[in-house]
Design a protein around this nucleic acid. Structure first.
Lengths: 344, 344
DNA sequence: CGCCTCGCGTAAATCGATTACCCTGTGCGT
DNA sequence: ACGCACAGGGTAATCGATTTACGCGAGGCG
């Protein structure tokens, strides 16, 4: 019968088996200090034989480094995580795992005081060496908070007001919207609307502005440029209202996300309109499922996995880890599928 | 100018400020030992004043408990996490966060040897107190591995071959498929097919079997009962083949997931068929986006958030945490939307 | 021959909290 | 007046690894 508690193997056991001191073992596995090849080999053997792994808590305590980073997802109204976040996570993991870093997930509601508390414990527990932040807002206090708490942080996206928080710099906010608009212009559309996310989100606002700017550059007045809460419901509602306005009905709408675009298509259909014949629609994010819809959804594709990878690299770099130069990000590009057509 | 390293506040600082020993502080914050109300108050004050939080690594080392649990997601071929996993995570977090447990994410490819190694380090690092496993397969060795490593584990789903791994017991495998089939029978369908996931997955196989059993109970022979790799591509392909078979074309198809159903609809359309007039379609998982499709997708809805919550409770219970009796799970139920209709 | 320098390891302090055990007063029963 | 129980709190060992400061022997050099 096996012992109740087989007592975990420690560095001491390895040292004993190899006939050296614990310090020697540590030096061998960390490659620090001077150890002769002969003893090193004996130690390696012992490690393998006992199947020893350094206790993460002990290392964390001694080094004040947990080899764990946090991902803070501000959870939207509903209790769910977006499809894009999933891809981000994959990207992060693909950089972290090979370096034996862990990824700790935090879901925080962003009611101001709950949020501050969440971030505070985040820093004080010292469970993570750094954090990845998402979804920057105007008047965002989180970056300042992280700085004052001394917790390295990297933002996915772009900070408002030139906040110095590290982020991916070749990730121009609003990029891709211009391509979408130009695509529509080439198809002959002039009556174009934009329905996107809330204006206190840096990214959503940047897209709005990019939309307006691109239209202006073409000498056109947008039919509408609307901020919503990102929900399919709002999108369907606002789309419906635009389509019901007899004289000023748009012939094309650009949306802030794929789900919003899908809801928009639904609203158009329920009014007897055909997409793309009567209304062209462009989404944002290029989710794979879009290809199977009818019509297949034209969308601005951004590679979330790639961005996750890049951010992970950036953060590890900040932590003094040796990661190569992060490869530059691909620009968002328009995935032309079937939901856009020449204006009649 | 602030010091380079402001040295983190420790229990010693709190003790000094309160004029007691470190042991006393520990006893106060943990509610162990005997401390007079007066000193307790002084300690509480000091804690608040210094904004102290116990160092997670130190506690983990001393108690051999990290207050962190791991979620192992076996990542499918593509580098992504399914929508259902996102909901699971939300559910888990909603139980873990209030108890100050962390959630550490592991993405593992399931090539056998890489997998074993991943799980091994999982247990030996001792970064987590327990793990949540997903996606049980036939001949799954992970549960035995976890047992032999002494790492508490709970499975989301049902183990094969009566493996004793803890899991949610009122979560009958295959449930919901019967409702889907009966719904179709009521609509007058008799030529029904099933296209689902791979047969080495316990859940996918259970659904197949449930499909076959329900058909048999109605005295019907399935048009087909097909195992695929869960991808939309395969689904579209197999759907197309069924529809092209002149004499034996099904009038209804039940799918193993919503994305598969969506791809199926696409395949039907490309052959000039109308859903649901010519073909009824039922998906699985009831993703919110399904409501906005055309036609809105009828689907078997299962509450992933709820399951996440239940599993978290179960695991914490195993770890000796005091969680109430987990509330029973809702049975999956059919969300009748617009993709099913009476047979012509 | 004496002294210094490497090379290779070891002993012991340390990270920050928890906890088993011990010490000191009081209050109370007899 | 003595002894005892118990409340209240302190001392020091401990968790498992890393790291600093040193010890020791061999070889080089003047």
């Amino acid at each position: 019968m096996a012992d109740e508690a087989p007592r975990r193997v420690t560095i001491g056991d390895v040292a004993a088996l190899a006939g050296v001191s614990r310090a020697a073992v540590s030096k061998v596995v960390n490659g620090t200090g001077k150890i002769s090849p002969a003893t090193a080999a004996r130690v390696q053997d012992a490690v393998r034989k006992l199947n020893w792994t350094p206790n993460a808590a002990a290392v964390a305590l001694r080094r004040s480094r947990s080899r764990t980073i946090g991902l803070v997802l501000s959870r939207p109204g509903a209790l769910e995580i977006g499809a894009t976040s999933s891809l981000l996570i994959s990207g992060l993991e693909s950089v972290l795992a090979p370096r034996s870093y862990g990824l700790l997930l935090y879901l925080v509601d962003h009611t101001a005081d709950d949020e501050t508390r969440a971030y505070r414990t985040l820093a004080e527990d010292r469970r993570v060496d750094g954090v990845v932040l998402t979804d920057s807002r105007y008047g965002d206090t989180r970056f300042a908070l992280m700085r004052s708490l001394g917790l390295p942080a990297v933002l996915i996206g772009t900070p408002a007001d030139g906040d110095p928080v590290p982020h991916l710099d070749n990730d121009p906010p609003g990029a891709g919207v211009d391509d979408a608009v130009r695509h529509l212009l080439e198809l002959g559309h002039t009556r174009i609307a934009y329905i996107g996310g809330p204006d206190d989100r840096v990214q959503a606002r940047a897209r709005h502005e990019m939309f307006d700017a691109t239209m202006a550059a073409a000498g056109l007045q947008p039919v509408a440029s609307i901020a919503t809460d990102y929900s399919p419901e709002s999108s369907a509602d606002r789309t419906g209202r635009l389509l019901d306005a007899a004289g000023t009905r748009p012939t094309a709408i650009v949306y802030g996300s794929d789900p919003m675009a899908i809801a928009g298509v639904s609203a158009a259909r329920s009014r007897g309109l055909v997409v793309p014949a009567d209304l062209s629609v462009i989404g944002f994010d290029g989710l794979p499922i879009g290809a199977w819809l009818d019509p297949p959804l034209t969308s601005v594709h951004r590679d979330a996995v790639q961005r996750g990878r890049a951010v992970a690299r950036r953060l590890l770099g900040l932590l003094g880890e040796d990661v190569g130069e992060p490869p530059p990000l691909d620009r968002p590009h328009l995935l032309v599928r079937g939901s856009t057509a020449a204006v009649r």
